[in-house]
Write a protein that binds this DNA or RNA. Sequence first.
DNA 1: AAGCCGATGATCT
DNA 2: GATCATCGGCTTT
Length: 201
Amino acid sequence: MKDITQYVPFSESFFLQPTLVLAEALLGCLLIKETEEGIASGYIVETEAYMGPEDRAAHSFGNKRTKRTEIMFSEPGFVYTYVMHTHCLVNVVSGPKEKPEAVLIRGVEPVDGLELMKKRRNIEDLKNLTNGPGKLTKALGITIADYGRHFSSLPLFLAKGITPDKVSRGVRIGINNSGEARNYPWRFWVTDNPYVSRTRK
DNA sequence: AAGCCGATGATCT
DNA sequence: GATCATCGGCTTT
């Protein structure tokens, strides 16, 4: 097991880039969570941008401000977790303060804590361990308790990983009931990476 | 590939 | 109290 001190969290300035640029820049970055059970981490291989007021698919569409979306209105780099059916999903808040944008993390390639992740997911099959937004949060131990943390500090943070060979871009997954927004090409993934969740339903 | 449906909390009325 | 959602696992073609 690696020592968590070998990883240097990104500083707050990393998150100061336009949301669509950040969404692509996050590909290859290492997402790390430390708990009492140990460290688990993975390279991000799939993201989606949610562009706030003008994006019907975003929780913050029309500047909707609720207890849940409140964190989206703060400075970039904060952790936005929320519950979807029986799963917890994790977003990186982006855009300047008062601009409620975010990047959903949809897939990671396992790096540290393989056994821990298998145990949490209760499966052995590597291919299905972290290839989906609900799967990776369970594998990494990310929960709604992480809401409001910042990705620049422990126990949940982002750090330099690898540079993807090739990146693909296309429409987002699972937002079919959002009119025009369903066709916006705001999904990014590492081309041909096996931990990308799926092609569109 | 496609369809069913579980089971949860925030939000709406 | 009802509705709905950035899903996943399982079953059926």
